[in-house]
């Protein structure tokens, strides 16, 4: 009896859950439906209507416009994610297991870098990067690597700190040096953290707009900037814009669908308690 009642109560939860799911999916619907409409069909008043036909013209047009910048983004995001993960892993290892004098000061200093508003470094950043000629994709990679160091370091440090010290001591007795321990003991068991950090860096670099708009020009725009520019400063074809928006979001959505669990952990890594 009681169990039945409980079960019913539980099933009642589906109503608010489905309601919330609809709320979360509404913008997605608008994006999809508008992406299939023709230019003349696009009107604010009829935004909830289904498109009159399923045509992929807008997607083809958007892809044609965005293809070069999708590659630019890929060329930028992959090295940025890989390099900052490697650096983060090394730093995390040293800060967790190989503390040197001053490490307790260095770590919070690095950590704080995660939270700075970019507005407070924007003017010097623009001046500096242009003065040393670090623009375009290489400049963007460097920016994402450097401003990614805090979060990658934190994630790996927390993970390594949770490993028992005995693991290292045993290896030390066997005569392994620091790099040996890192390479043969810690690296092989770091894969989960790597996945988390790679996903995090991948999505944040892919979605970044501020650095990209400052550092790149039309030959190497990443996709967020290209999307913003597709409109030009005057006439906007919303149907193509929406189709393009979906294309631009596709890689992160794909990573997120394929690796949902790790994506979740990646997000949690953003909190200090990760």
């Amino acid at each position: 009896m009681l169990k039945n009642l409980k079960l019913q109560k539980k099933h009642g939860l589906y109503i608010p859950l489905i309601g919330m799911a609809i709320f979360y999916l509404l913008p997605m619907y608008v994006m999809l439906a508008t992406g299939f409409k023709s230019f003349a069909e696009v009107d604010l008043k009829t935004m909830w209507n289904l498109p009159q036909g399923i045509a992929f013209d807008n997607y083809i047009e958007a892809y044609a416009k965005l293809a070069p910048s999708l590659w630019s983004s890929a060329k930028m995001v992959v090295p940025a994610a890989l390099i900052s993960s490697m650096l983060g892993s090394l730093n995390g290892f040293i800060l967790a297991k190989w503390k040197f004098k001053g490490a307790d000061i260095i770590f919070p200093l690095i950590l704080f870098g995660m939270f700075i508003p970019y507005q407070s470094i924007l003017i010097p950043f623009v001046q500096f990067m242009n003065a040393v000629g670090l623009t375009g994709i290489p400049g963007l990679i460097i920016a994402h690597v450097i401003y990614g160091i805090p979060i990658t370091t934190l994630t790996f440090r927390n993970y390594y700190a949770s490993l028992p010290q005995e693991l290292l001591e045993a290896a030390k007795i066997d005569g392994a040096d620091m790099l040996g321990i890192y390479r043969h003991i810690l690296l092989p068991i770091s894969m989960p953290s790597f996945v988390v950090v790679l996903i995090w860096q991948f999505t944040s670099a892919w979605n970044d707009f501020l650095f990209a708009v400052i550092l790149t020009s039309n030959t190497d725009w990443p996709v967020t900037v290209a999307l913003n520019n597709m409109a030009g400063s005057q006439i906007i074809s919303w149907n193509v814009q929406m189709a393009g928006s979906l294309l631009a979001a596709l890689p992160t959505l794909l990573v997120y669908i394929l690796l949902g669990r790790y994506f979740l952990r990646g997000l949690l890594a953003g909190s200090l308690k990760g």
Binding site: N130, A131, I214, S217, N229, S233
Partner: peptide, 24 residues
């Protein structure tokens, strides 16, 4: 063709200003 994105030239002007400040 060094075209820079956006916002009726706002972003472009930011980039241009920094290039000029850098003597480039």
């Amino acid at each position: 063709n060094a075209a820079v994105a956006g916002g009726a030239g706002t972003n472009a002007r930011a980039v241009l200003a920094s290039r000029l400040q850098a003597g480039d």
